[in-house]
């Protein structure tokens, strides 16, 4: 292995990352414009979290595809794929209803990303995974049950 080449690469990587960090710091108020919604993240039920996010009254939709295992062997890492076929989708939110704090996150796809996201979540016990899609200012929802044999929370 050519050592000098490695050092050059490493150096380039570090300066690149620094420049990007500066740019990100300056440009940040774009995506995820709303501040991290503490009230929603602290909510202990999906209903309360949805209320805090303004998602109350979301309409059931068949145009949201949730791909997750029927039975998760390891609740600490449950892969979830979500695709929205609703035109004008701007964000995708995930709630794991039986977790101590159900609201797991919101993914903003309004600025040039396709209405798709893959994530891996901890699921403490068998629970519906509820998804809320925002499209054109309206909210749509769907859910999929995931059975967990070994919990993801606690030690």
């Amino acid at each position: 292995m050519d050592r000098s080449r490695r050092i050059v690469l490493k150096g380039a990587g570090a300066t690149g990352a620094l420049a990007a960090a500066l740019a990100a710091g300056l440009l940040r108020p774009g995506v995820a414009a709303a501040a991290w919604n503490k009230a929603a993240f602290d909510a202990k039920t999906t209903a309360d979290a949805m209320k805090a996010l303004g998602y109350a009254g979301a309409v059931e939709s068949k145009d949201i595809q949730i791909r997750a295992p029927e039975i998760a062997e390891n609740g600490a890492v449950v892969p979830i794929d979500i695709t929205s076929n609703i035109p004008g989708t701007t964000s995708i939110s995930v709630f794991i209803e039986k977790n101590p704090f159900p609201y797991t996150g919101t993914f903003d796809v309004s600025q040039g990303a396709l209405p798709f996201v893959h994530l891996r979540a901890k699921i403490g016990e068998s629970s519906p995974v509820r998804v809320v899609v925002t499209a054109g200012g309206k909210h749509f929802t769907a859910a999929k049950e995931v059975k967990v044999t070994i919990g993801g929370c606690g030690g």
């Binding site: 995506v31 991290w36 600490a76 977790n99 996150g105 990303a113 891996r120 979540a121």
Partner: peptide, 21 residues
């Protein structure tokens, strides 16, 4: 130019993996 963003909770798995397009 911003293209994707996320606000997430502690329920995301350790060493998080995400995919987007």
């Amino acid at each position: 130019k911003p293209v994707f963003g996320a606000d997430i909770s502690q329920a995301i798995s350790r060493n998080p993996v995400f995919a987007f397009k």
